[in-house]
């Protein structure tokens, strides 16, 4: 944005300031049409509020809530997309289907068990790292060490999943190293198992655990720990009685984020998992890729998964004694 002085300074040879040239803002605000619009729309606080509120609310309720509500509505229909001349009936059939076959319930339960395990695994791996960054490093080095962790996460889901495949394949790096060391004579089948899937999910989601943990640990003033030490608390007691309770918010946010994100992956389970690790995302996706009219079933299953994940998160937050609603705040 060119300022007045810069303009008068730089363009002095071209435009004589005495010419009465006026700046963009002067011309805009002196324009009668602009003045009328400004008077009409901006002059009162109330009008300004509604001017901002109406488009924002339409966007938020229309596009943030709209798809979810549409999905729930369709989950109660017996057919969708609608065929010509036929009004779909309302039914509970799609929800009942879920409880009728074990090949639906199994991936569902597996998804939640896996996601919970991976979340706890990520927590136990990332807590020491967040603690190391926030409490053991000089502030000047914290950013550098954090940045180093950040870089791999700028690369997308698919590329990083593929990188894990190279690491874990039968002729992958890990097997070559193990065989080279003589620890195994034949390649260990890491791929297409819960192990490879877990390895991939931790690889993909650990940042979402790290950042909230780091933020909450970094906020704990050093003199709290010094005061505790002064009062005779050993390092374990200091950690358990001071650091851990004060980082509870970070633990909660991190776990919720990782849990929700890991239940939502589709490509990673497809690429890293096998038939024994099919997750619910794959089951749902199946309804949308087969030919024919399976959308209502897919919508019902998505609704079940959404509800189940939100309930899990709600229970978890209650367990930690934390009010919900401040998840991202």
């Amino acid at each position: 944005m060119a300022t007045t002085s810069e303009r008068t300074g730089n363009d002095a040879a071209l435009i004589r300031p005495q010419d009465g040239t006026r700046s963009f803002w002067t011309r805009l605000t002196a324009n009668p049409a602009y003045q009328r619009a400004s008077d009409l729309l901006l002059s009162s606080d109330r009008r300004r509020f509604w001017l901002l509120a109406v488009p924002a609310l339409i966007w938020m309720f229309g596009t943030h809530l709209g798809p979810i509500l549409t999905m729930i509505r369709i989950s109660f229909l017996d057919s969708y997309p609608p065929s010509a001349g036929r009004v779909p009936d309302v039914t509970l059939e799609n929800y009942l289907l879920f409880f009728q076959a074990p090949n639906y319930i199994t991936p569902f339960v597996r998804t939640f068990v896996y996601s919970t395990c991976y979340t706890l695994l990520t927590l136990s791996l990332m807590y020491p790292i967040a603690y190391f960054l926030a409490k053991k490093l000089r502030p000047s080095r914290q950013m550098l060490f954090l940045l180093l962790l950040l870089v791999p996460f700028w690369v997308g889901e698919i590329v990083r999943t593929y990188a894990i495949m190279i690491l874990l394949g039968n002729r992958g790096f890990l097997n070559i190293v193990l065989m080279g060391l003589g620890l195994t004579s034949r390649p260990i089948p890491f791929m297409y198992t819960g192990f490879s899937l877990g390895m991939g999910l931790v690889y993909l989601t650990s940042l979402y655990m790290l950042l909230p943990l780091y933020a909450s640990l970094e906020k704990i003033p050093r003199n709290y720990l010094e005061a505790a030490a002064d009062l005779g608390a050993g390092s374990w007691t200091r950690f358990r009685r001071v650091t851990l309770p004060l980082s509870k918010d970070g633990i909660a946010s991190g776990c919720v984020l990782v849990f929700l994100i890991s239940t939502g992956y589709y490509a990673t389970p497809v690429l890293l998992g096998g038939p024994s690790t099919t997750v619910f995302a794959e089951t749902i996706a199946g309804f949308f890729h087969v030919a024919g009219d399976k959308w209502p079933e897919g919508a019902a299953f998505s609704t079940i998964m959404l509800l189940a994940s939100l309930v899990t998160v709600g229970l978890f937050l209650r367990l930690l004694g934390r009010r919900s609603g401040s998840l991202l705040g």
Binding site: M1, T3, T4, S5, E6, R7, T8, I15, R16, P17, Q18, D19, G20, T21, R22, S23, W25, T26, T29, A30
Partner: peptide, 26 residues
């Protein structure tokens, strides 16, 4: 984000003054 001169000129621009007059007033 504005220089001293631009800060002072801010209100003058919105009064409809030309750049020359603003410059002199600043």
């Amino acid at each position: 984000h504005m220089t001293v001169a631009s800060n002072i000129a801010f209100g003058l621009e919105l009064q409809g003054l030309g750049l020359g007059a603003i410059d002199a007033r600043v």
